[in-house]
Each structure stands twice: as structure tokens, then as C-alpha cells.
Amino acid sequence: MSPDDLSAVRKALGLTQREMAAKIGLSLRACQLLENGRSGIRLLHINATNALEQRR
């Protein structure tokens, strides 16, 4: 999953960065860093994002 993929999933779910961060247990800043590519996306983030998609 790339930063652009993460952002696209968040937007498809209709969530702000703050809402997405809260739902997957991150700070807003951590979510921002992931989406802009300044922090690496780990399996933990992918799994949390996939779980959100499944609940949709």
C-alpha cells in the first residue's frame, strides 16, 4: 500500500485524516506522515485500514 492508496481509501470511506487516525489508533500527525510518505506504512497500518474497509 502506497501513501496515495492510503489517502484514496480514507477518502472513499468519507473520513477526514483526524477521523481515520482515531479509527485506526493513530495520532493525526502520524496519519499525515503516512499519507505524505514521510513515514513508512507497515503491515499494522494496512491491516487496520483493511478492517475499516470491511466494516463499511
Rank of each mutant, 00 (worst) to 15 (best):
1 M>I: 06
2 S>R: 12
2 S>V: 06
3 P>C: 04
3 P>N: 07
4 D>F: 06
5 D>Q: 04
5 D>A: 07
7 S>A: 13
7 S>Q: 11
8 A>E: 13
8 A>F: 05
8 A>P: 02
9 V>F: 13
9 V>P: 03
9 V>S: 12
10 R>W: 09
10 R>M: 10
10 R>K: 09
11 K>D: 04
11 K>C: 01
12 A>R: 12
12 A>I: 01
12 A>L: 05
13 L>E: 10
18 R>S: 12
19 E>P: 00
19 E>S: 06
21 A>W: 02
21 A>S: 13
22 A>C: 04
23 K>N: 10
25 G>E: 12
26 L>Q: 02
26 L>D: 00
27 S>L: 02
27 S>F: 00
27 S>T: 12
27 S>N: 02
28 L>T: 09
28 L>D: 05
29 R>K: 15
29 R>P: 02
29 R>V: 15
31 C>H: 03
31 C>S: 15
33 L>D: 14
34 L>Q: 10
34 L>K: 04
34 L>T: 08
36 N>H: 06
36 N>E: 08
37 G>R: 01
38 R>G: 13
38 R>L: 13
38 R>T: 15
39 S>N: 15
40 G>A: 15
41 I>D: 06
41 I>W: 07
41 I>K: 04
41 I>R: 05
41 I>T: 05
42 R>T: 10
42 R>Y: 07
43 L>A: 12
43 L>Q: 14
44 L>A: 13
45 H>K: 02
45 H>S: 02
47 N>F: 10
47 N>L: 15
49 T>V: 13
49 T>Y: 11
50 N>A: 14
50 N>C: 08
51 A>G: 03
51 A>D: 15
53 E>V: 14
53 E>F: 08
54 Q>D: 13
54 Q>A: 14
54 Q>N: 11
54 Q>T: 15
55 R>V: 13
56 R>N: 07
